[in-house]
Design a protein around this nucleic acid. Structure first.
Lengths: 174, 174
DNA sequence: CAATTTTAAGTGATTGCTTACTTATTTTTT
DNA sequence: AAAAAATAAGTAAGCAATCACTTAAAATTG
């Protein structure tokens, strides 16, 4: 991985995340990276290859973010860590995560069910805590957390959601 | 509003909703409408004018959908009608609503806070029912409903969410 | 070790094609 | 026949991708 390759990836991430994949031209990416346009196709084959290289990191990063929840041992800690998730995202990686959400709606990119492990763990936690509908409770909390994350990524305003975080902790952990 | 104008709007709605605004060319819209491309610019000025004409209906349609909630007189009915919202969308209008959500992520289209009236009404309902954090409860339910709607619009599978609807009714209305 | 060959990285001009949009002309309506 | 609606044939700019080519770094040889 040469210097210019990483500069291409950095530029592509920023532009894809902010303007969208389809709306970003390869010439823009090359110009932003300070590199010739042809280099994109030498190193990544085509425009989509550039996106794929970016997404290859996704699974690893998601696993890192979800780890505190998935490796929690008791149900209360599981839910507590889950509530922290939207606030645990490194602001330096907002571009990366915003790209994930944007791709949900971009053409020709099928969105896999990456949140299943989180859902399963939450289901276990609610079950342990005696909730009568653990599956649906897990679904609900997961939806709420994803909604918060989406808003934070779109507006970049994690501080505005702090009171809501407190509310969720009170609601679920007393 | 001539026949060919409505055919242009119909074609534009379907293509914009499925492929995205930026990813849809004016020539495709014209071809799908069975009409010459220049007609778009004669009637709507430019490509964006086509989108704006589509969005002009948005407020009216949203008001129609939200009416059962906003005009409910007691808090239980308010929440009950709110839970029905994602399932009350006419499948013939999925394209229209999917376009709304897609635009959230498309460049250069600022997303206004159209859900405020719903949020306020839910806040009132939770307050009436003695919830200690009505504002956050309203926020939470609103997020959940929007998440359901988003999924139904993306996958077109309202039936899969019926059990979840039952759960929400049980959770909020006993 | 130095000369030679091979491989990889990088460039930028150019490709055929698509884009949003315009202009001139024809058809339809009143 | 005048006005409006619609078309067909454009335009210039932008697109992803390819091209012949240069430079730099390894690898192979004598």
């Amino acid at each position: 991985m040469t210097d210019k390759q990483t500069r291409l990836l950095d530029a592509a991430l920023e532009l894809f995340a902010n303007d969208g994949y389809n709306a970003t031209s390869t010439s823009k990416v090359a110009k932003a990276a300070g590199v010739s346009e042809g280099l994109i196709f030498r190193h990544f084959g085509n425009k989509r290859g550039l996106l794929d290289a970016l997404m290859a990191e996704a699974e690893r990063k998601l696993a890192t973010v979800l780890a505190p929840v998935l490796f929690a041992t008791d149900p209360e800690a599981t839910i507590g860590k889950a509530v922290e998730l939207p606030f645990a995202i490194d602001p330096g990686e907002y571009d990366f995560w915003r790209l994930q959400y944007k791709l949900k709606w971009e053409k020709g990119y099928h969105h896999p069910q990456k949140m299943k492990p989180l859902l399963d763990k939450l289901c276990w936690a609610f079950s342990e805590l005696g909730y009568s509908h653990p599956e649906q409770e897990a679904q609900l909390l997961s939806q709420v957390l994803e909604a918060i994350a989406t808003e934070i990524l779109r507006a970049g305003n994690p501080e505005e959601w702090r009171p809501y975080r407190t509310f969720l902790r009170w609601k679920y952990l007393g």
